[in-house]
Amino acid sequence: MPTNPPTFPVLHPTDPQGRPESRSGSSNERELRLLKRVSQQDRDAFRELYFIYHRRLSRFISRLTTRRDLADEIINDTLWTVWRKAGDFRGASQVSTWILGIGYRQALTALRRAGAHSTLDEAAGREFAVADDLYAVDETRDWLDRALASLPIEQRTVIEFTYYLGHSCEEIAVIMGCPVNTVKTRMFYARRKLKAALSQLANGA
């Protein structure tokens, strides 16, 4: 592999190529073909894979940190790893599971290096400017964000993958590199802590 990464394209909110795709069997086959070409240092294939995954990774990472610079660093490190390690993929999971697993590990490393607690505290302390008629909805969303921010990152990640990205416990286990029962245990404790945190916030604690 070359020592220099390919140039990362810039995605804009209206760029149709940046939209996440459905996880159908045909899309996985397409991504397998792209990944094989990437392993052969095909920059056009990497660009196409980048367009498929940049926004999906951004959606996930941005829920773990409000720091745009840190999120961009994690996403770029993830895709750079995909470029370097494409030849290591053995097909034991879907391409999406493999790439999100890389993203998860990069996020853990970056958040711990930056100080995960301060990053999550920043998310917990965000203020929302809302119109009066939307106050109740946004207040509830604010409570949920604060409650999620109070969870340990492993428990929070399980919630994000399940409810925001739609992954099964089996897929999450592969992404996080742990047994399925560990995912279920983290989900159990995450739900219990969320319930307690939301109750405290609702009561003005």
Rank of each mutant, 00 (worst) to 15 (best):
A149E: 04
D121H: 05
A107Q: 05
T140E: 15
W80F: 14
S58F: 11
N181M: 14
T97N: 09
P20R: 07
G103K: 02
M1S: 11
Q17R: 14
T66C: 07
Y163E: 01
K193Y: 00
G103Y: 02
Y189R: 05
A124M: 12
L148A: 01
T81R: 04
Y53I: 03
T140G: 15
E31G: 02
A45S: 09
R191H: 01
G101A: 08
I159T: 02
H167P: 03
T78I: 09
A190P: 00
P5N: 11
F128R: 08
P2D: 10
Q155E: 14
E139M: 15
R191K: 07
L201Q: 06
E73N: 01
F188R: 13
P5V: 05
E154Q: 08
V137C: 02
E48C: 02
Q40T: 04
V82R: 10
A131S: 15
Y50T: 02
N181P: 01
E73T: 06
N181I: 13
T162Q: 00
R19E: 08
S96C: 08
R146D: 05
S118L: 15
D132H: 12
A71G: 05
L201K: 04
A190T: 00
V95N: 05
R23P: 06
A196L: 08
I159C: 04
P6V: 00
P152E: 12
S26T: 08
L32K: 11
R59Q: 04
R59Y: 06
H12W: 15
F46Q: 04
R105H: 13
L201S: 03
T65M: 08
R186N: 08
G115T: 15
P16G: 00
G115A: 14
